[in-house]
Structure formats: C-alpha cells, structure tokens
Design a protein around this nucleic acid. Structure first.
Length: 863
RNA sequence: GGACACUUAGUUCAGCGGGAGAACGCUUCCUUCACACGGAAGAGGUCACAGGUUCGAUCCCUGUAGUGUCCACCA
C-alpha cells in the first residue's frame, strides 16, 4: 500500500543504482533499430548548474522515450577538459596552496590537472546520478583521453595536408592573464567607459600639425604611419610629408588610403600594424614595419623607452603626462566604446601580431552551407536557428586554434632544431632527438568539434561507429551554436562526408525569477542539488522540461517546482486509489468490446491523449506533450472518471465492476508510462506497485495510439452528464444551498442515455431525478437547456427571480444567434468559407434558435 | 549598422485564420471513504500600437514603439 503522501526522497532512494547495475543504461541490442545521442560534455571545472540540469533532462526524456519505443538507444556520456578554464582554476588552487607555479614543469602541472579532473569528474557523476540520467557509462569518454587524442592528431594532419591548417603571423586576440591566444568567439565585447584622446602629431619641417585621436595611447609606440583619406581636402597638401610621433619622437610618413573614414574623428588615423587588425592590413599593403610593443603579460617592452616594464594602463597615464608636458595634448572626451574581454577571466584582451596555427575556414564553411541545401542537412529545432548557424558560416574568419597552454592536445608539429623544417605528423619523427615539438596545445573546441564521432572510435571503423554514427539527435543551448554545433558540423563533413547528427534541438538559458541571467557576481545562481533536496529530482525534471517553449529562455520559479511536485502527488494519490480498489488477484486483460459509455468515454480521452502526447514528443515539444497528459490526468481521469468509478464499483453487476477495474488499471498504467520519461523515479515506484508488472518500468513499451479503440457516439451522452452535474452544483452555490442539499430535479432527454446513468446523477447531485417528457416548460422552476436535454430545477423561488434568470439565458442565446446570423448573412462567407465551417454555423444557429424558443415559451408560461 | 526573438489575466507563460488558455495568486463554499501539497464554483484580458491581406486577424504581411539576445564596427 502506498503512503498517503508522495515522498520524493523515499521514492528516489536506490533506484538509480539499481537501474545502472541491471544494465538498463547500456546500449547494444542489435535486434533493435539504433538511436544515438552524445551528451554535450560538461567542463571539468566545477559543479553543474541548472542549465546543465535542463539540457540533460531533455536528453534523458528523449532517450527514455526512444528506449520505450523499442529503439536501441545510446546516450554517450563524457566530459570536456576545457583548456583555459581548467588550467586557470588548477593554477589558482596551486597558488593558493603555496606552490611556486613559476618553477612548475609541464609534466608536473599536468599531474595536478589530472587529479583535479578526477575530483571534478566524481562530482559530475554524482550529479548525473541524482538527476537520474540514463547514460551508458560503459562508453564514457573524456576529450583528452588517448582515443580522442588519436582522432585529434588524425584530423590535424588531414587538414594540414589539405592545406586547411596553416601557420601564420596575424593579429590575434591575446589574453595577457593566461598569456595565450584566443579565437574570435572567445572574446566578449562589452561597452566600457573610456576616453578618446586627441594628440598633436607635428609635421616635419613645419609649424603645422595633424590632430590624431586614439583610445589606446600606449599603442603609439607601435605607430608606423598616420593615414588620411586621399579625397579629404583638408589633408591633401600633406600627402607625402612626414610627422613626428609625440610618444617617442619617431618620424613616420603620412599615407593616403581610402580605408580612412573622412567623417570619423579628425579624419587622420594613427596606424599601429602589430596591434590592430585594420592597421595590420594597411601595414601589409604598404610594407610598413610592424613593431610589437608589449610583453606577453601586456607590460611595455623595450621599444617603449622610459616606459619599459610598465603595465599598459599605467603606461597610458604616464604617457599622457609626458605628452601634455610637451604641449602635444589637445583634449580628451569621455566615450562609451566596445572593449574585448577574455571570455574566461574577463581581462581586457590585446590585439597582437603573433605566429599561430589557423584553420582556413572558407572551404569548410562552404561545405557546411552547401550541405544545408541537401537532404542530408542538419535539422534545427526550432528551424530559425539554422539562420543563426548559416549567418555565422557566411561571415566566418579563419580560426586561431593554437593556445599557449599546457592542458590540452599538443599540436602534432615538430621543428627541426637545425634547419627549422616543420614536420606535421601523427607520430613524432623517427629522429625525434633532432626535433622539438610545438609547445602549444589546441583550442578546446577543436577536440569538442570531433565529439560525435571521436567518442565512437573514429578514425577506426569500430562497430559502434558503424552502428551509431551519424547520431540521431543533439541537444544544446543556443549560446554554443557557434562554439560547438557549427564546428561539429564542418569537422564531420570534412572527416566523414556527412553531418554528425540529424536533428539539433536548441533550448535557451535558465534565468532567475526576475529574468536575469544567473551569474556568480549576482549570486543568483540556483544549485540543482538544493532543488532536488527540497522537491526531488522528478519535480525538478518536470518543471525544467514543461515550463518553456522550444528555443526560448525560461525562468527558474520555485513555486512552479512546488506546483510540479503537487502534480506528482496528484498522480501518486490517484494511483493509491486505483490500487486500493483493485481486487485481490487482479489480472490485466484486453479491454472488452462491450464497455459502458463512461468507460468508452475515458478510453477515448486516453487514446486522444496518447496521440497528442506522442505527436508532440516526436516534435521535441515537451511542454505541449506534458500539457496534454496533465489535462487528462486532472480533468478527465481524476475529476471525472475516477469519481464516477466510485459509483460503477458499487454496482451489483459484476461485469460493470470488472470492466471498471480494467479501465482504471489501463488508465493508471498509461499515465505511469506517459509520465515516465519526465519523472522516471515516481513512475518506477508506482509501476512496481501495480499488481501486474515487469522487473522495471524501463522494460515497458510506450503506449501506442490505436484508432480502432476509439468509440463513436458516446462522448455527447457522457458530457451531458457532466454538464448537468456542474449546473446543479452551481445552482446550489448561487442559491447558498449546502453542497449536499437535495433538490427536486426533472429532466427531459432528447437523446437516449445509457443504462444506469441515474445512479451517477444521484451520487453527484445528491438528488433524485424525475424523467419527464417535453412538458417540462409548464413546471415551476428554473430551466437549463442543453443540446440534448432540458433540466428543470423545481423550486419555490419567486417568479420575478426565475424570470430574471431566464432573461439572462435568453440574452445569451440571442447573442449567439446574432453571431451566427452575422456570419451566415454575409454572402462572401457563404461563398468563400469552407463548406464544413458554414454547415457548422448553420447547425449552431438551429440549436440556439430552438433553445431560445424553449426559453421564451417557458417565460411566457410563467407570466 | 545587421540579424533573431519577445510584447496575451495581478505575476510567469502557453496558444491559435473562425466563440481567449494554464500555472501561481485572488474570491466564495466544502474536512464526503485517493489527495486540504485537496475538492467544487468563480472573478480577472479593447491578445503593445497603426495600417494592409482575408468572407473573417490575437494569429499572416508591412510599419511604429518598447524589451531582450547575438553578430559586426568603432582611429
């Protein structure tokens, strides 16, 4: 016997370990059709947050649903080494523990990093278990493990041989804290307050000067020219002349180039080729020198005279003082401008000329774009995210993939110590003693981009790769479409000639109750484990997956998790009721053909529910799917059928009772199976309490819609019953009568009601019914008119009161009639609207007209 | 500058070419034998604004305003 109250902790206890030990999570049944999905590997940098909980619950629902539908469904787990983020955290911890990190060797550091990884992997495993995720741990991978490293080297060499990876000196974004290059998308541009400084650049051998504006005066040490637009009349006379750089006194040329915007600033632009991407282009065009003026930590280097060794921002202030003292300072204006910050540590990144490895993106992007025009395209859900992807692909720049870190896949390039020759190969050259391997590692996203196939054993043609690749589906947030989704797509197209997955399901972000992004600085983050401790994993899972529209952000609202928990309690208690009434030795049977209308009605509702739930599950619309089930549970099953069954079960007819048992069981079992992918723990608990069950709900099949189980022509009879009961209850409330007050009721049926319906009416109205013929309007009392019946509540109320109520109903009917007439009297409506719609309106008009006549008749008789 | 969302009940959000929905909150009544973490009944909305398409627009199109996000640029 179930407890009176659903207790999530008692329910969830031990179930996960049991499932895992029984091997239910392990894929590999070759007799079934394959379905596969890889988890977006979480970073081994910390705890999982609500966003992870959301993302993984969606996937868990999909996998459990597919397993139940008879697929060999693989959900492959794993984690990401997260290069910069992890290295930064490990370093922080080492510093905190008093380790002198400057003396650390690469190998020593990596030892620390691996032990960090193992700690955090444990945390993540525990969280996955609490969430109840159906992950196949026998196939778990890590982005830095040996097999994946093999895949990474293979891809690197392949792209290099195809000319799609090259080494080049270009302007990259430099993170001076981590002291590594970053790719464009690892730089977050945010609006910061700053100043625009205006300086005088004196013209050589002249009293005149140019006014040049800059936001970064410290870069003036790297200026190699000043540019003006050749069409700019103000500066025509200076073409070919030279100016003095007020920072260091160097003489630099004035160059006329179309690139300069006449309207912007003063129309004269300082050009620093080594520290600005646009200036770099000009520098190349005119063969200018490209002096680098920063050290790796963004302090000033030896090119900066007396400022050498100063931090860039300190240098800025000191340099200003100097220029001011020399009279070359004009003014400064406060401005808001966009400044690049490192995604990982928020420091201001410095554009810097540097030799790095790049992926040539054009050909790869073109292939990805072309693939979207074929049948083998990636199906984005919702579809609009395909635009996001294509737009990025269409405007893509080359991808800087080298990182000056230790924690990552080391670049398989070897430099000959004498000749400097570069060898790129899977394995080190045979005479390795003559070579030195590139010290850099690859961008984390390089290995993540291979995840859907590297995890299955690629490039070896393993059984798993053949069976599970391409994967069926990928679930992730819109925030990493660029970082990850697009890279997986072009990497896979290059490596495999096909996309890595068929569907990409994109969700939004979890925000706080006020709609703000959850962040450490605001301290508004919610720990999923705390929510689980309060409400249980099932309630959290249900909340997360049923309170948002696909692709849209959601808010975490504690009350809604509570509401989810209440819903589960409702299911729990309805199960408790069903289990308590089922007789000893109950056996599940095929539903008999001869069911009562009530039974037929609820089966109709159930079938309809199964159909709409399945349709929406297949569209990954879990909010809609669960909504249909919710309505069935509350409105159809609990409020109506379950209450009605109390009458059925008191019947003397054994057949009626037995059928009711079967129908109750059928409904309950279906509810358990339909809710199961969302809330596996409570579903398992209830399932195992059924008198007939398998070893686990995980071995069950998903309910299937069957049109031939739908019964025609019963819904009207049953719904009439419900309408009458509701109106009688209403009447009592309006008249301040006790809910169980006995009324004198007369009913005139225009359809044949099913046998025994009176018992149900009596039970829920606490009143006897007198069945009469159509003379009902002659009787004293209040008349309710339905499509298929009239109900008279016989009472002693004053005539005025009754007439007032009838007038209200007359007004309502007249309104409806007007609405119908308005439509039907429109010739355009008759000729252009669909025939069914016209017929429907005509039918309604007829019905309302009849009702109106009855009401008027009744009113006249009362006068 | 470009793109994409969003604007519907007090709040959070669904929805839809043909009579406006849910949850929470609110009001009234009810401890009757699944559940008071409950039940029964109810109040509450010119569906942002303006045009257009249509027999008919909350829904489709265009524009406006506001909100949010992303991309690009910024000497």
């Amino acid at each position: 016997m179930l407890d009176k109250r659903y207790d999530p902790h008692a329910v969830e206890e031990g179930k996960y370990e049991n499932w895992k030990n029984k091997g239910y999570f392990t894929a590999g049944d070759k007799s079934k059709q394959a379905f596969s999905m890889v988890i977006p590997p979480p970073n081994v940098t910390g705890k999982l947050h609500l966003g992870h909980a959301w993302d993984t619950t969606i996937q868990d629902i999909i996998i459990r649903y597919k397993k139940m539908q008879g697929f060999d469904a693989l959900w492959l787990p794993g984690m990401d080494h997260a290069g910069i983020a992890t290295q930064a955290k490990v370093m922080q911890r080492l510093v905190k523990n008093g380790v002198d990190v400057t003396k650390l060797t690469r190998e020593e550091f990596l030892d620390h990093a691996w032990s960090w990884k193992n700690e955090y992997a444990n945390n993540i495993h525990e969280q996955w278990a609490k969430m109840g995720l159906c992950l196949d741990y026998t196939r778990e991978r890590f982005t830095l493990d040996e097999g994946l490293n093999y895949a990474v080297r293979h891809v690197f060499v392949d792209l290099y041989k195809k000319g799609l990876i090259y080494q080049g000196e270009r302007i990259i974004s430099w993170d001076p804290v981590q002291q590594t290059a970053l790719s464009n998308i690892e730089v977050i541009h945010q609006d910061d307050e700053g100043y625009m400084y205006y300086f005088r650049y004196p013209i050589v051998n002249s009293e005149e000067y140019l006014i040049v504006a800059t936001t970064r005066p410290e870069t003036m040490f790297g200026d190699t020219c000043v540019c003006v637009n050749p069409k700019d009349k103000r500066y025509k006379k200076y073409h070919g002349q030279k100016v003095i750089n007020p920072a260091n006194g160097e003489i630099i040329p004035i160059i006329a180039d179309e690139y300069v915007d006449v309207e912007f600033g003063t129309g004269a632009m300082k050009c620093t080729p080594a520290h600005d991407p646009n200036d770099f282009i000009i520098g190349k065009k005119y063969g200018l020198e490209m002096p680098i003026i920063f050290n790796k930590d963004a302090t000033m280097n030896e090119k900066c005279g007396e400022f050498v060794g100063l931090d860039r921002f300190v240098c800025r202030e000191k340099l200003l003082e100097k220029i001011k003292s020399e009279g070359n300072f004009i003014k400064q204006e406060k401005i808001i401008h966009s400044v690049g910050h490192s995604e990982r540590n928020n420091c201001v990144v410095e554009p810097m000329l540097s030799k790095q490895w790049f992926v040539k993106m054009k050909p790869l992007a073109e292939a990805a774009i072309a693939n979207q025009k074929t049948e083998k395209k990636v199906n984005f859900v919702p579809a609009r995210f395909e635009n996001t992807f294509l737009q990025w692909m269409n405007n893509i720049e080359d991808w800087c993939i080298s990182r000056q870190l230790w924690w990552g896949h080391r670049i398989p390039a070897y430099y000959h110590k004498q000749t400097g020759e570069v060898v790129v190969s899977m394995d080190p050259p045979k005479d390795i003693e003559n070579y030195e391997q590139d010290r850099d590692v690859l961008d984390t996203w390089f290995s993540s981009g291979l995840w859907p196939f590297s995890t299955l054993g690629w490039p070896n043609e393993t059984a798993d790769l053949k069976r599970y690749f391409p994967t069926s589906c990928l679930v992730t947030g819109y925030d990493i479409i660029f970082f990850w989704v697009s890279r997986m797509i072009f990497q896979s197209l290059n490596a495999n000639g096909e996309a890595p997955f068929k569907d990409v399901v994109i969700h939004g972000l979890v925000r706080d109750e006020l709609g703000r992004k959850m962040s450490k600085s605001l301290g508004n983050g919610v720990d999923p484990i705390e929510v689980i401790d309060k409400y249980g994993a099932d309630a959290l899972r249900y909340f997360l997956t049923t309170n948002s529209t696909p692709g849209q952000d959601m808010r975490y609202i504690d009350d809604k998790v509570n509401a989810s928990s209440n819903y589960l309690n409702k299911i729990w208690n309805s199960a408790r009721y069903v289990l308590s009434v089922l007789p000893e030795g109950f056996k599940e049977e095929e539903l008999p053909k001869e069911l009562s209308p009530l039974d037929q009605w609820i089966i109709n509702r159930l079938e309809k529910t199964i159909k709409s739930v399945t349709t929406n599950m297949d569209k990954y619309d879990f909010n809609a799917a669960s909504g249909h089930l919710y309505n069935f549970v509350y409105d159809d099953f609990c409020s109506q059928y379950l209450e009605m069954s109390k009458v059925s079960l008191s019947s003397n007819d054994e057949l009626v009772r037995n059928n009711t048992y079967q129908v109750l069981f059928k409904c309950l079992k279906s509810i358990i199976l339909l809710i199961y992918p969302y809330t596996p723990f409570i579903a398992e608990e209830l399932y195992l309490n059924l008198p007939v069950h398998k070893e686990s709900v995980m071995l069950e099949s998903y309910p299937k819609y069957e049109a031939n189980r739908v019964h025609l022509n019963v819904d009207k009879q049953v719904e009439l019953l419900f309408d009458i009961i509701r109106d009688v209850r209403n009447y009592k409330i309006e008249n301040k009568l006790a809910p169980n007050a006995k009324l004198d009721l007369s009913i005139n049926l225009r359809i044949k009601m099913f046998e025994g319906y009176e018992a149900y009416l009596q039970r829920f109205t606490f009143s006897e019914f007198k069945v009469v013929d159509d003379s009902i309007v002659n009787m004293r009392g209040e008349l309710k008119i339905y499509d298929n019946a009239d109900l008279l509540i016989v009472n002693e109320a004053g005539q005025g009161e009754i007439i007032a109520r009838i007038d209200k109903e007359i007004a309502e009917e007249e309104n409806e009639i007007l609405r119908c007439q308005k439509m039907l009297s429109n010739p355009n409506f008759i000729s252009k609207a669909p025939k069914e719609k016209v017929a429907l309106e005509e039918e309604k008009l007829k019905q309302h007209t009849e009702n109106l006549a009855l009401l008027k008749d009744k009113r006249n008789k009362l006068l």
